[in-house]
Simulated assay, not measured.
Amino acid sequence: MTKSKPVSINGDTRKFAISDEIKRYSMIDLGFKETNNKNFLYDHPLYNESPYNATMKFKVTVNAEMNHLTMVITDKTGLQKVNIFKNENLKPARELLEYMLRDLMEKQVIEEV
């Protein structure tokens, strides 16, 4: 498998890539959905108190060949990128993001490079 190009989340200094150990069933267990063009999409709300009134989303896409990764935080419409690292009021969202990233790394979907 070809190694994916390292990517970073808007505003974050770390870089991530697809793990060499990635497995389709691990992605399904984590909540990735297979799209019509066979890509895998993880679309999770980032919220302070309730996921029902979340103002942001964390989106991860892995292509069907599992060699291309995108990671982005957007507004709730999914159209505008949001930088949660520059606003101290968004600390709860950053903590939730850290939890999700740790889960993705533990299940060997992504790795920090």
Rank of each mutant, 00 (worst) to 15 (best):
D29L: 07
L101K: 10
E34L: 06
S4I: 09
D12N: 13
L97G: 03
M27Y: 04
V7Q: 12
A17P: 05
A54G: 13
Q108E: 12
T61E: 15
K81Y: 13
A17K: 15
K33F: 14
T61W: 10
N37H: 08
R14N: 15
I84E: 00
N37D: 15
T2H: 00
F40G: 03
N10W: 06
H44E: 15
E34A: 07
N89R: 06
L97E: 02
V72F: 10
K5V: 03
E95F: 00
Y42A: 11
R102H: 06
P45I: 08
T74F: 09
D103T: 11
L69S: 12
T77E: 13
M27S: 05
E106L: 15
L69C: 11
V60D: 10
S4Q: 04
I9C: 07
N67Y: 00
Y47M: 08
M105F: 13
M100I: 12
P51K: 15
E112F: 10
M27W: 05
N10M: 07
P6M: 13
I18V: 11
L30Y: 11
D75H: 03
E111S: 09
L104P: 07
D20R: 03
I28P: 03
V72L: 09
K86C: 05
R14W: 02
T2L: 02
I73K: 12
S26Y: 03
S4H: 04
D12Q: 10
N67L: 00
L30N: 13
K3N: 04
Y52F: 15
H44Y: 15
M100G: 02
T74M: 07
T35Y: 04
L41P: 13
R102K: 06
I73A: 11
F32N: 11
D75K: 05
S19P: 02
A54I: 13
V113G: 11
E49C: 09
N67M: 00
L97W: 01
N36R: 12
Y52I: 06
M27P: 05
S19L: 03
H68A: 05
I110V: 09
R24V: 06
L96C: 04
R94H: 01
G11R: 10
L104Q: 06
D75R: 03
P45D: 09
V62M: 04
V82E: 10
